[in-house]
Amino acid sequence: MNLVTNNNNHWRIFLTICLVSLITLTGCQTTSDSAVTGGSNSEEIESPMADVTQNQSTDIDNNIMNLPKLEGKAIVEMKVKGQSITIELDGNNAPITAGNFLDLVDKGVYDGLVFHRVVTEPQPFVAQGGDPQGKDPNFPVSRLGTGGYIDPNTNSQRYIPLEIRPQYDESAEDATPPEIIYSQTTDVTPQLRHEYGVIAMARSQMPDSASSQFYFTLADLPFLDGSYAVFGRVTNGMDVVEGIAQGDRIDSVQVISGIENLKR
């Protein structure tokens, strides 16, 4: 699933086209935000996306004000196989995406969930998890990657919009961040790019279909920029991330700092 190959441009273009065309989940029929093919031996090329029902509303604008937002930064600690991964969430540049993730962390949604898709061959690509259906050990492995967070207040799945802030000089004292682009892919260079060791949201072909599934990047993946929302980065424990195998479970995720910056 990696786009870095020895045949340079032609092979890369071919794989990129395959990735884009298989942005939806090829597992089962419903919901969510991951790009899995179902089984661990699948040889199809896919991107970090998921299947969604066709009747899903895309009218995110009416709900955007009700979504959690992170105003500033926050730190969370994820434990996998007893080892720690420290993640800095960037609410300055991805307030809704980071806020959604922090809210789900605070609710304990990710505890016990499975990394249902880990792609390391032929090149490192992503380690993807966050499907709440994976908490049930009897849930079919072939269907993991089709689920998202069900909000108990609405009894329906929470979706968040695709969120991309164009690049700017964040270090400049008089820097004015450009407006965030919502609900559409873009060719502009984003402020938060798909560099090695970032965390981003998986989604389906529909831009506003991310819910709870996320992925860690195992390499620089610039071809995903502008199509998926990066919302933070691993600051410690990338060796743990690189050791994640498909089927490994998240022991726990807890907020270390910044919960006061979460607005719900």
Rank of each mutant, 00 (worst) to 15 (best):
I180Q: 11
E260L: 06
E170R: 14
A74V: 12
Q83K: 15
P207D: 14
T120K: 15
Q184K: 15
D220K: 00
R193K: 13
Q213K: 08
G148I: 12
H10Q: 11
T53W: 02
G134L: 05
M49A: 15
K263Q: 13
K81S: 13
N153A: 08
S204Y: 04
S209V: 09
G72V: 01
A200K: 03
I256N: 06
G82E: 03
I17Q: 13
P207E: 11
K107V: 14
A219H: 00
I87L: 07
V240L: 10
A245K: 12
G232V: 04
R158W: 05
Y110N: 14
S183E: 10
K79Q: 03
I85R: 02
N236T: 08
G148M: 07
Q29T: 06
V188N: 08
F101H: 11
Q205T: 10
N9R: 13
C28G: 03
S40N: 09
L218T: 00
C18I: 12
V80R: 01
G39P: 10
Y159A: 06
S212Y: 05
R233A: 00
E46Q: 08
M1Y: 01
N9F: 12
P207M: 12
V36N: 05
G243R: 08
S252H: 07
L192K: 07
P137Q: 02
P137H: 01
L104N: 05
G247M: 11
V126M: 03
S204G: 15
E242K: 13
M238Y: 00
V198K: 01
A35F: 02
A50D: 07
L218F: 01
F139H: 09
D103G: 03
P48L: 04
Q246G: 14
F223P: 00
D90G: 04
Q133W: 14
P207A: 14
E242P: 04
R233T: 00
E173I: 01
Q83D: 11
T86K: 11
E121Q: 14
T154V: 03
V119W: 04
Q133T: 13
A94W: 08
E195F: 01
I23D: 02
K81V: 02
P177S: 06
N92K: 02
G147S: 15
S47M: 07
A98T: 09
G72E: 02
M65A: 14
N66T: 08
I150T: 13
P152Y: 10
G82L: 09
S84H: 04
G99F: 05
G247I: 13
A127R: 07
S171V: 10
V198C: 00
L262I: 09
N138D: 00
K135H: 13
K73M: 06
N100R: 14
A210V: 12
T154A: 06
L19R: 13
G247W: 07
I164N: 08
N55A: 02
T58K: 08
P152C: 11
L67G: 07
T97E: 09
H194C: 00
V230M: 02
I256C: 10
K135M: 09
D90E: 11
N153S: 03
A200M: 05
D225S: 04
Q191I: 12
S183H: 06
A219Y: 00
